[in-house]
């Protein structure tokens, strides 16, 4: 596998800016987003629809759709920049070092190829193995993600599988070349509630077995609570808060996160949508000056409407982008 740098995170996103040039000016969809993912860690990423979660994933894996582009910042994988690699080099990273699971398993698989064909193609793209060996690995992988009678089912076409089974196939495909990082973009949103937990479990278990890190994008705070080590909260293309799941859930600091947590009655109740805060997230062309959350924030004060808060460290592991936690202010308040 890849060289081991015990020090330093697996993935490091620094001040990432993603923009869409449009006729009426440039839209800034991600604005100085920074976070790390440690080796073997599961980072949850939450935020309302349109907050920029999928764009973050697409930027990391190098699949932003034009005209979207990375306009600033850098992305490092084990300390090496991957945001400015030549196309061919980045292609070799996709699948091999960073895997991706998309939302809808019904549309993620090519309907004209059998599962075996798609798995073997993926394995042989990245690994120098024979057709036979690739097939052996493919069967083992399918078996591992929980497809019954994998050796037989592998020659079936995607439409022979149910939604939940197809998402298992998608996970197998994403993991086929043993990536170090898996980005799962709402992997259960399109699935029946009854199979959601199983899919998350399979994903989490296999990644843990292999020591792969996971960036788990979801609407579902329940899933985050049960699965993630740390959680990042995204709002209008900016990071609001990031920290260990336990801390953030039990003692959210950013007023937006506090609102989010208020929207989940209990931690075990899942699938609660993050819409309980009055008002709605601004469109990209209508983000207020200062803190993006200020029009909806009950605790906003003058400074919030003028100056944008950067991430402020709160202890060893937490960071919050809110002026309430400005050390200078706190010093005054005391």
């Amino acid at each position: 596998m890849a060289p081991v740098h015990k020090s330093g995170p697996l993935l490091s996103v620094r001040d990432l800016v993603v923009e869409f040039p449009t006729r009426r000016g440039t839209l800034r969809a991600l604005d100085k987003v920074s976070f790390d993912i440690a080796e073997g860690e599961v980072l949850g990423m939450v935020g309302e629809s349109g907050a920029g979660k999928s764009l973050t994933g697409a930027a990391i894996i190098g699949l932003l759709e034009p005209p979207g582009r990375i306009a600033g910042g850098e992305i490092l994988l084990r300390g090496e920049r991957i945001d400015n690699l030549p196309r061919e080099k980045m292609r070799r990273i996709r699948g091999r070092r960073i895997g991706m699971v998309f939302q809808d398993p019904l549309t993620s698989l090519n309907p004209l190829y059998t599962v075996a064909e798609q798995l073997i193609e993926t394995i042989r793209t990245h690994m120098d193995v024979s057709e036979k060996e690739a097939r052996k690995r493919a069967v083992a992988l399918l078996d591992r993600v929980g497809i019954p009678a994998a050796a037989r089912r592998i020659d079936d076409y995607p439409h022979h599988f149910s939604g939940g089974m197809r998402q298992r196939v998608v996970i197998a495909l994403a993991l086929a070349a043993e990536p170090e990082l898996v980005i799962a973009d709402e992997p259960t949103t399109a699935l029946d509630v009854s199979v959601q937990a199983q899919i998350i479990d399979v994903l989490k278990e296999i990644c843990a077995e292999r020591g792969a890190s996971v960036m788990l994008i979801t609407h579902d705070m329940g899933v985050i609570a049960e699965t993630a080590d740390r959680v990042a909260v995204l709002y209008a293309g900016r990071l609001a808060e990031i920290g260990p799941v336990r801390d953030v859930i039990q003692a959210a600091e950013h007023p937006y996160t506090v609102g989010l947590m208020g929207s989940i009655p209990t931690l075990t109740q899942t699938a609660e949508r993050l819409t309980q805060i009055p008002g709605s997230m601004p469109r990209l062309d209508a983000i207020q000056q200062g803190c993006a959350f200020n029009p909806r924030c009950t605790r906003a004060f003058d400074r919030c409407r003028v100056e944008r808060p950067d991430l402020i460290a709160r202890g060893e592991e937490r960071q919050v982008a809110c002026w309430l936690y400005d050390p200078a202010k706190e010093a005054q308040d005391v």
Binding site: L63, R94, R96, M100, L109, E121, T122, A174
Partner: peptide, 17 residues
């Protein structure tokens, strides 16, 4: 524009494939 093409790219398949 379909998802399975995006997914094929995300698996690192070559442009030709």
């Amino acid at each position: 524009r379909t998802d399975y093409i995006k997914f094929a790219r995300a698996r690192g398949l070559s442009n030709r494939a």
